[in-house]
Amino acid sequence: MGILSWVIILGGLAIGVLVGLNVPFLIPQLYAKYLSVAILAALDSVFGGIRATMEDRYDNTIFLTGFFSNALLAAGLAFIGERLGMDLYLAAVVAFGVRLFQNLAIIRRHLLKK
């Protein structure tokens, strides 16, 4: 983890935020819920990736596929739940939320061990 990687991460984040803030259109309210679940899944993947890096078993393919498929699956689950009249996105929120905190806890331990 050199300075370059931090530059890449922060630079990507900054460009993404800048673009997101300046895009002329907004997500329709109808889809905002799906996007939020997708963000949660994506964050989970990111923290999973960080954890894997710290455990020295990071796999780029797994990271990328996990990132996209988790996000899409979470959004799709929320969408299907909406169609079925069931708050299925809660399942995604709970599952990804739990995993997110687990990953965070593991990352914290790795950081403390160093």
């Binding site: 990507g12 460009i15 997101g20 997500i27 994506a42 780029n60």
Partner: peptide, 28 residues
């Protein structure tokens, strides 16, 4: 380089999504 590219891509997408969601939520 591949790893850097994917990390950059993921960071970009996360930033984009968060910013968009932020704007959408505040507008709601």
């Amino acid at each position: 380089r591949k790893i850097y590219l994917s990390v950059f891509l993921v960071a970009l997408i996360i930033g984009l999504m968060v910013a968009l969601q932020f704007r959408t939520t505040s507008s709601i």
